[in-house]
Amino acid sequence: MRALVVDDSRAMRSILSRILRKVGAEEIHEAGDGSQAVAFLEAGASPDLALVDWNMPVMNGLELVTALRSRKEWRRIAIVMVTTESDQGQMVRALAAGAHEYLIKPFDEGSLVEKLAMLGFQAPSAAAGPALAAQEGSH
């Protein structure tokens, strides 16, 4: 899996990237706002997944989601919004704009892993033996 993490906080990007590595991401790129993400994609990058914050300078997460859905070659990118915005209306707007999943900060690692699994992204060991993984996780 190739992933793009878009958040204006380097600390949050660091946390998200660690979780992505655990679920088997082979390539992780980071962007500090939506415009950096767009520039990265326009340079030819082709991630499978984007984790996108909402409140960012220059270009916010909703604008980025809209941009990602406006170009045919970017429509295959799965998008998870990871944000403090918990208002139901904003959640609906993000999903209507084209985000696949929505996760509110703070989140525990398991919640993000679960969202990623729902999108088909999971660690090879988990994919091979979900029952065992679930058993180990319950200890």
């Binding site: 906080s9 380097r10 600390a11 409140n55 403090t84 915005e85 918990s86 900060k105 703070p106």
Partner: peptide, 18 residues
């Protein structure tokens, strides 16, 4: 680094208070 991390902390606290 410190400003970034503490900034994210208040962002999350503020978002939840909001």
């Amino acid at each position: 680094d410190i400003a970034d991390a503490v900034g994210e902390l208040v962002n999350v606290v503020g978002g939840n208070i909001k």
